[in-house]
């Protein structure tokens, strides 16, 4: 059908010229008037990309606030405040980074059309993500036990909002991941259609990539 349309259109010399010029997204396709070529970045991926841009700006606001408090205070952590568990969280960081790696492997498995591999790697990713959240939750409970709460000055407040916002994102990403995992087990994805895995992987990569930045800022600085 497309070829017919192209052939019909080619009667116009300038249309033939336009057909030879490369297509650039939705706008500059050959004017067949019937159907379009696939855009370079699909609607869903582009939308998720935009959403991630907004997410980055959201965290940028929090980090901007953190910078003010961190640089303005003579001692950080302020006196009489508990130290953060740097060591345990370092291990946790490695766990989360590993989950980013396994997510890439899952995506590659999806791309090559290997459903069992896909399910395996997705399960491992979900497991690593859950372990990360578990360790974070445990550490939070200990910190609250040591008396670090939201209302104990800006130190506690920035810690819980920054790390808490990230934890909420990891949680959301994990829920999404598990939904994708269930779909993958039912054999929803193939070499040709794996957009669900791809989108989830994008979001997971964002969540994983954000963490080292926050770890460096909140725990190490």
């Amino acid at each position: 059908m497309v070829r017919e349309a192209v052939a019909r259109r080619l009667i116009e010399p300038e249309v033939a010229e336009e057909l030879r010029t490369p297509a650039l997204g939705g706008g500059e396709e050959p004017p067949t008037g019937v159907t379009s070529t696939q855009p370079a970045v699909s609607n869903a991926r582009l939308a998720l990309l935009m959403f991630l841009a907004a997410e980055v700006m959201f965290f940028a606001g929090l980090i901007g606030a953190f910078i003010v408090f961190r640089l303005a205070s003579p001692a950080w952590p302020p006196p009489f405040q508990p130290r953060l568990p740097v060591g345990v969280t370092a291990i946790n960081t490695v766990i989360l980074l590993l989950s980013g790696l396994t997510m890439r492997l899952a995506l590659m498995a999806a791309r090559r059309g290997k459903p069992t591999r896909l399910v395996q790697w997705l399960s491992i990713t979900a497991l690593l993500g859950t372990v990360f959240l578990g360790i974070q939750g445990y550490e939070w409970l200990r910190l609250i036990g040591f008396g670090l709460t939201l209302s104990s000055g800006v130190y506690g407040a920035t810690f819980y909002t920054l790390i808490g916002c990230h934890a909420v994102h990891v949680f959301g990403a994990a829920v999404w991941l598990i939904a994708v995992l269930l779909q993958a087990r039912r054999g929803r994805f193939s070499e040709r259609s794996y957009a669900g895995v791809q989108l989830c992987a994008m979001y997971w990569t964002f969540v994983v990539g954000l963490w080292p930045v926050l770890y460096g800022l909140v725990y190490l600085s």
Partner: peptide
């Protein structure tokens, strides 16, 4: 002041 400068630059 310094803290705000860095925050402004960052944002």
């Amino acid at each position: 002041t310094d803290a705000f400068n860095w925050s402004v630059l960052f944002l």
